[in-house]
Design a protein around this nucleic acid. Structure first.
Lengths: 91, 91
DNA sequence: GAATTATTTCGGTAGTTGGCAAATTAGCGA
DNA sequence: TCGCTAATTTGCCAACTACCGAAATAATTC
């Protein structure tokens, strides 16, 4: 869970997730959308994979990345947990 | 919004938010719960304030921190946005 | 096995972060 | 104003992060 929050901390990684919500994309396809070196993107993919936010599947010579919805759902639950049990005195 | 995600990236800051969900607490009270220097905690408070996740109010010589629920709600909405518009091909 | 394409790993750098102790600011009461 | 308590700011350092280009790895096709 710690890794999930860390992964969310970087704007580039959030943009990757945003792109993947529409359709699965290869590492190269994703890299084209950013003004960054492919090696840099590869590092971001690793962080996202480690946080289980994306899943990678090799298809021939290319790697296809896709969102892992359940990890996103868990992140939402964790943030919502901060709201739920609040006991307010005044309001 | 960027600052909100950055603020969530640190475990100490998430724990501060978790403590504040029960009741408002002073800087000193909060600092007691962590094995960290007060100056370090003060830095964390600043990050949380900057992200508008907490609000500070001076009460005499002490500073009282409280959760800013609306910022939390926005963070949830942002994460949920990653889920919502997903178009699935198979399933 | 050599050439091609796609991606990752490695080595290095600049900037950021989290941590502390010490100095500083702020409010309060004598 | 002085002394006390609470909290923040400052200066410094070690660890981490994002980034790059070059070299290495992986799968495919000839």
């Amino acid at each position: 869970m710690n890794d999930v929050f860390r992964a969310f901390g970087d704007p580039t990684r959030r943009e990757i997730l945003r792109l993947l919500r529409r359709r699965d994309m290869s590492a190269g396809e994703l890299a084209e959308r950013f003004p960054l070196a492919k090696s840099t993107l590869s590092g971001h993919f690793n962080v996202l994979k480690h946080a289980r936010l994306v899943v990678a599947e090799r298809r021939g010579t290319t790697m296809v990345y896709s969102l892992n919805l359940s990890a996103l759902e868990e992140a939402i639950a964790a943030v919502m947990g901060l709201l739920e049990t609040r006991r307010r005195k005044k309001e």
